[in-house]
Write a protein that binds this DNA or RNA. Structure first.
Length: 211
DNA sequence: ATTTTCAAT
C-alpha cells in the first residue's frame, strides 16, 4: 500500500526547473512538494523528518502526502495507549505550485478535524489564480480560514530548500534572474487573494460547495 | 505584446 517516498534528495536541475518562480511557467506539468515534519515528542524535544514528493498517476501531490501522513506522523490520530495524548505535529510544505481548488477544500476539511496538526505552505507559483473568481482563489482563502499559513517563497526559502532537499554536491544556490521581483509580485497577488471574504465560517463555505 | 498551469499525445 505505502510505496517508497521518492529518493531523499532532488536533482539540482529538477529543483531549479520546477521551483523557478517565472511568470510563464511553461512545461511545468508536474508539481513537487518538499516537506519537513516536526514532531513534538516532549516539552522540549522534537524529531524531524523530511523529503519530497511528486504528483503521480493523476493524484495531486497534496493528496499523495495525505496518503503518507499515517507513516510520517505516528500517533497523529487515534488515542494510543490509555492516558496517552495525541502527538502534535508541525508540517511545512514547499510546493512548486499552489494547491488546486479541490485539494485546498479537502485539506481544509481534513485539517479542521486535526487540531494537533499545524500546516504551513510555502509556494513558488500560484496555480490558476489569474481570474478574480477562480475556484483556486476560493480554495486558498478556505485554507487560510482553516488555519493554514500560506506564503509565497522568497530567496531565503529557495535557499533553505536548496540546502535541505537538493543533491547540491557542494554547489551554492544561485538565484535566477528576477527571482526577487517575481516573488514580490506573487506575494502581493497572494495577499490580495487572501483578503477576508464574505463567508462567515468554514462550515458555511463547505455548505456552499455542497460538502 | 504575448506567453502557463498536478497533460495528453
Amino acid at each position: 500500500m505505502i510505496t517508497k517516498l521518492d529518493s531523499v534528495l532532488l536533482p539540482r536541475k529538477k529543483f531549479i526547473f520546477h521551483y523557478k518562480n517565472v511568470r510563464w511557467a511553461r512545461g511545468r506539468h508536474e508539481t513537487y512538494l518538499c516537506f519537513v515534519v516536526k514532531r513534538r515528542v516532549g516539552p522540549d524535544s522534537l524529531t524531524f523528518d523530511f523529503g519530497h514528493l511528486r504528483n503521480r498517476n493523476g493524484c495531486h501531490v497534496e493528496m499523495l502526502f495525505l496518503r503518507y501522513l499515517g507513516a510520517l506522523c505516528p500517533g497523529l490520530w487515534g488515542y494510543g495507549a490509555a492516558g496517552e495524548r495525541r502527538l502534535s505535529y508541525s508540517i511545512t510544505w514547499f510546493c512548486s505550485w499552489s494547491p488546486c481548488a479541490n485539494c485546498s477544500i479537502r485539506l481544509a476539511q481534513f485539517l479542521s478535524q486535526m487540531p494537533n496538526l499545524r500546516l504551513r505552505i510555502f509556494v513558488s507559483r500560484l496555480y490558476f489564480c489569474d481570474m478574480e473568481d477562480s475556484r483556486e482563489r476560493d480554495g486558498l482563502r478556505m485554507l487560510k480560514k482553516a488555519g493554514v499559513q500560506i506564503t509565497v517563497m522568497t530567496y531565503k526559502d529557495f535557499f533553505y530548500c536548496w540546502q535541505t532537499f537538493v543533491a547540491r554536491k557542494q554547489s551554492n544556490f544561485k538565484a535566477w534572474d528576477e527571482l526577487h521581483q517575481n516573488s514580490v509580485r506573487l506575494a502581493r497577488k497572494l495577499h490580495r487573494i487572501l483578503q477576508p471574504f464574505e463567508t462567515e465560517d468554514l462550515r458555511d463555505a463547505f455548505k456552499l460547495l455542497g460538502l
